[in-house]
């Protein structure tokens, strides 16, 4: 049954800044993407050695999810199977595919190869958080709020999930942007309604 869903929190990492729920938490202008993502990791004192092995899409998505869920997610309200992830982007894993292609002429790198799929970033988020619900990754020309809302509403309305992390995570070279939304059925104090209009407006703010 269709009920209202709410944006318990949102997080965007883009343009060398981290923004959560409309507030800029960290800035590091003038650094390239690799140095910037590392500085985010260090700024928030994350301790997850696997981070260093990830490709840039993995790092970007993982960091955005960490900051999205930090302090704002009562994961113990849910079973692992009740939490899912729906992500989209326009460049798939092309950023890493090109890096992998460069290694082929020498010795193809197994550690680069395993990131040559876009949905690996979902795996990184799920492994970190022990999420075991449905997940999907869609490649689209641009951020499509109506499409994401349709997918997530279906999963929540049919009780396939009780909470869903959704949004956009895209990297190609020095261009990157991730915006993730935590969607739940219960309303926190300042939570906005989960609607195509609201997520589109949040996505386009930064």
């Amino acid at each position: 049954m269709a009920t209202n869903k709410y944006l318990s929190s949102t997080c965007t990492i883009a343009k060398n800044a981290v923004n959560k729920n409309g507030i800029t938490l960290f800035k590091n202008p003038g650094t390239d993407i690799t140095a910037f993502l590392l500085s985010v990791y260090q700024h928030f004192h994350f301790n997850y050695p696997k981070f260093y092995k990830m490709d840039n899409l993995g790092k970007l998505g993982w960091l955005t999810a960490e900051i999205l869920l930090k302090d704002d997610f009562e994961r113990f309200n849910y079973e692992p199977e009740e939490i899912g992830v729906v992500l989209t982007n326009s460049n798939s894993s092309l950023d890493n595919d090109l890096k992998y292609f460069d290694t082929i002429s020498d010795i193809p790198s197994p550690s680069v190869f395993v990131y040559t799929l876009p949905n690996i970033v979902i795996g990184e988020i799920c492994i970190r958080n022990n999420f075991k619900g449905e997940h999907a990754f869609f490649i689209q020309e641009k951020f499509d709020a109506a499409f994401i809302a349709q997918q997530v509403n279906y999963l929540l309305d049919n009780d396939i999930l009780q909470a869903c992390i959704c949004g956009w995570a895209d990297v190609l070279g020095q261009d990157y942007k991730a915006t993730l939304f935590l969607v739940e059925k219960k309303k926190n104090e300042q939570a906005l309604l989960f609607s195509p209009e609201n997520i589109d407006s949040i996505f386009n703010t930064i």
Partner: peptide, 8 residues
């Protein structure tokens, strides 16, 4: 079942 441990 899935052990959700590593890609490969």
């Amino acid at each position: 079942s899935n052990d959700a441990y590593h890609q490969t």
